[in-house]
Design a protein around this nucleic acid. Structure first.
Lengths: 159, 159
DNA sequence: ACAAATAGTCAGAAGTTCTGACTAGTATGA
DNA sequence: TCATACTAGTCAGAACTTCTGACTATTTGT
């Protein structure tokens, strides 16, 4: 660690900064949402998401995702409706109250991105995003076939 | 969310991939280390680190860091020695057993970085790292003055 | 010497996440 | 159509992680 920082730490810093600042703004606006809840909420699609999808995207088990969605539903930020296409599934959707949270989060996110763009300059900034997109294809567990159902993501098959 | 992925998600994917693969390799080698423990262990300096420093770097409270260091110490991966420069402090150091873990982790990390470099190409890869370094200066809570003691990082001053 | 700040600990509570076992609906193929 | 395998989600319980609050010992600055 006296050496140059690892890519892990380097990715961690902006990731966490973004997450923390957006959450702080949401909380400051009077929404008592936790970080774990936010990590699920953030991934709910406008058109509605299935629990399993959220769980995979957030890289937690479906039980964990269910626990957090339950809380967000009780608090009125999310709702569950039957999925017309699949009787087993339910669609998790953002409520009006949830959209109020999105309305707070979005400009903060934009503000941070603007700070980053100012720091890197427009060209490097665009390239940075493109690089992240490329790495996403390499590192998104969705892309990895044959993962089983209860796992939060890769890294499991150890121990 | 039907839109293009946010920078948050984009940073999350490679961060988590790296973390998970390195941890999986360590666990596969027979070291029963958890993700939370690894996040602290990873930040211990060769020359020894103070608990408070580790806590800040990992962005958890010092109590949490202490809890995890206790476990890593019991398991023999870390040790605590008095800090000759400050009677209050102790230096947390990596033991021989801990260095065996580092010896497993390092090449995996290098392998992943090589994959990323292969994907981005050498030029974009170098620029990607430079951009992350620049953003680190912007987002490292160490750089933010006047933060108080028990906080895991920013984002706190909300609610 | 004294006040303020810092390093770390102790105790307890809350929050998150996991494993295992289960129910119900869907898809496939004989 | 029926059996089988698979997928979506839930229930229960345990383990793990993280936090808040209160405290001791030591150092720093005046």
């Amino acid at each position: 660690m006296t050496d140059e920082p690892s890519l892990g730490v380097l990715l961690f810093l902006p990731y966490r900064h973004l997450e923390d600042r957006v959450l702080a703004a949401v909380q400051a606006a009077g929404h008592p949402i936790t970080l774990a809840q936010a990590r699920v909420f953030q991934r709910v699609d406008q058109a509605g998401s299935r629990l399993t999808t959220l769980a995979r995207a957030a890289q937690v088990t479906k039980q964990t995702a269910a626990y957090l969605v339950d809380q967000l539903e009780s608090a009125g930020y999310l709702e569950r409706v039957p999925d017309p296409r699949d009787g087993r599934a339910r669609l998790i959707r953002i409520t009006a109250k949830g959209r109020a949270v999105v309305a707070i989060a979005r400009p903060v996110q934009a503000e941070i991105e603007a700070e980053w763009t100012a720091r890197l300059g427009p060209r490097r900034s665009a390239e940075f995003r493109k690089s992240l997109l490329a790495l996403g294809e390499l590192t998104d567990p969705f892309a990895i076939p044959g993962r089983s159902h209860d796992q939060p993501g890769p890294a499991a098959g150890a121990g």
